[in-house]
Amino acid sequence: MMDGKEYCEYVSKTAPKTSELKTLLPAFCIGGIICMIGQGFTDLYAYLLPEAEESMIGALTSMTMIFFGALLTGFGIYDKIGGIAGAGSIVPITGFANSIASPAMEFRKEGIIFGLMAKMFVIAGPVIVTGVVSSVIVGIIYTIVAAV
């Protein structure tokens, strides 16, 4: 028989690969549509709340998109979008909502505390940790630079 190294080379050469055109195009289009919807909400809130600051409008838009991401997850629609769009629906904030809502739903069966609450962040956890750690690092650098 072949040895392991030779076999791994054979497999990496012959295994079915992701077709770039077939995946990049839907990812671009659906990701773009999600962002367009987000921009639509931004414009809507800016129109409805002319006094509000830009950061406030941004926060409102994020909250709205998170709400719809979680809602579509609950209705069992977001995973179907994800199947077509791939990263196109993972990268926007709706994907972040999906990554928290889906384990919460999945592990609800093991109870509220040890199921839902404990497992809610199994996928989003690393993202949150990275966000917090990097903001602390940037904060320290900013403080030092400002002091100098």
Partner: peptide
């Protein structure tokens, strides 16, 4: 799926292999 991979409702794309 839930034991070996991801929650069912997570929007991931299956690899062709």
């Amino acid at each position: 799926e839930r034991q070996f991979r991801y929650p069912l409702e997570l929007g991931t794309q299956p690899a062709p292999s």
